[in-house]
Amino acid sequence: MANTTTLEAEKKLTWGGGKSPFTVSYGKLMMWIFLLSDAFSFSSLLVTYGFIRFTFPASGANEIVKPLSHTAENFVEAMREAHLFSPEHWPLPELVFNHFPFLHGLHLPLFFVSLMTFVLIFSSVTMVLAVEAGHRNAKKEVAFYMLLTIFGGIAFLSCQAWEWTQFITEGASLHGNPFGPTAFAALFFIVTGFHGFHVLSGVVLNFIIYVNVLDGTYERRGHYEMVEKVGLYWHFVDLVWVFVFTFFYLI
């Protein structure tokens, strides 16, 4: 009984004003709220993707190309002839995203994008390690992990650039592609582009924070909350990628 009253008293104190009910600073709360709202903008794009995809029939099953097999030079034309690529239906992602750098001519669906996923997850880990080091005010460790995170971000962006280049050289553009409906390539460019733009701004933010860490700004301030805030943003970018990965490559 006594326990419940203290709990209740505590609850009253929590929302009673004079302090944050979540015990987070206003900056962190702002970042959370911003991410909530940004999640809605990504959702609107993914919903568009879902809508347009639902308006097209699914492709027939691929019985021709096996993973790890060699692909012909005129792969795309062959697929068109086999009616696996056609403007009438949505293409199978395995037949479109099947390249890997330096392994030209092999059918390697999903390998490259899995690599990208790992890069991003790993950079998320280094980010959270930087945050953890920040709690201990360990300046050198924070800087080290921030640098790793920045490299991770740049690596991801480079991967994306390579994939876009590959996609474009095969003839994809915003108003047409050899794989299927126009909207297929357009949506791919816009959604991954919007995500990539977020990664890019994340890298820029991380770089600014990294410079500030080296400069000792946060050491003088006494806490590394700024690292936590960009950390939240960075994980959010990772989070979005999980769904981009699921919807564009797996399904």
Binding site: T14, P21, F22, T23, V24, S124, V125, M127, V128, V131, E228, G231, L232, H235, F236, D238, L239, V242, F243, F245, T246
Partner: peptide, 21 residues
């Protein structure tokens, strides 16, 4: 994907350790 999202939000983004509110 949702399970992955849960782990990212809960641990990496620290949500598990924040207030439920």
């Amino acid at each position: 994907g949702v399970v992955k999202a849960f782990y990212i939000v809960a641990v990496f983004m620290h949500m598990k350790f924040e207030r439920k509110a």
